[in-house]
Simulated scan of single mutants.
Amino acid sequence: MRAEKLSISLPPESIRLIDAYRTSHAIRSRSQVIEHALRKLREDELEAAYREASADESDWDATAGDGLAHETW
């Protein structure tokens, strides 16, 4: 994976959290902890989008009643 170096500033409690997570999960670097956190954030956003889409049943009702009988599909 190609990586780009980035400099960020974080409060001391965030650094302690990163270091504690790295140690407890046997992760090699702070960068990998940040990458893990970003991947989790993306997953959470995607999950929320799916949840929102499934909650809007009016869209489902509009497409589910497309004229095909259950036997057809």
Rank of each mutant, 00 (worst) to 15 (best):
M1Q: 09
R2D: 11
A3Q: 00
K5A: 07
K5E: 09
L6Q: 09
S7F: 09
S7W: 08
S7H: 12
I8M: 13
I8W: 10
I8A: 12
I8V: 15
S9Y: 14
S9D: 07
L10K: 04
L10R: 05
P11C: 11
P11Y: 14
E13T: 11
E13N: 14
E13Y: 09
E13H: 15
E13L: 08
S14I: 14
S14L: 15
I15H: 06
R16M: 08
I18E: 00
I18G: 00
A20S: 07
A20I: 14
Y21F: 03
Y21Q: 01
Y21R: 04
R22K: 07
R22T: 06
R22W: 01
T23P: 05
T23L: 12
S24H: 02
I27Y: 00
R28Y: 09
R28I: 11
R28D: 02
R28W: 03
R30P: 07
R30I: 15
S31V: 10
S31D: 01
I34N: 00
I34E: 00
E35L: 14
H36S: 13
A37E: 07
L38K: 06
L38Q: 07
L38E: 02
K40G: 06
L41W: 05
L41T: 10
R42M: 07
R42W: 06
E43Y: 02
D44G: 12
D44I: 14
E45A: 10
E45S: 03
L46V: 13
L46Q: 10
A48S: 11
A49N: 03
A49C: 02
R51N: 03
R51I: 05
E52W: 12
E52F: 15
A53W: 07
A53K: 09
A53L: 13
A55N: 15
A55C: 12
A55M: 14
A55T: 11
D56I: 01
D56A: 03
S58H: 10
S58W: 14
D59T: 14
D59R: 14
W60R: 03
W60I: 08
W60F: 02
W60C: 08
D61K: 03
D61C: 06
T63D: 10
D66L: 02
D66V: 01
G67P: 06
G67A: 01
L68A: 04
A69L: 13
A69H: 14
A69R: 10
E71P: 00
E71C: 00
E71T: 04
T72K: 09
T72I: 15
T72F: 15
W73F: 15
W73P: 01
W73H: 12
W73A: 10
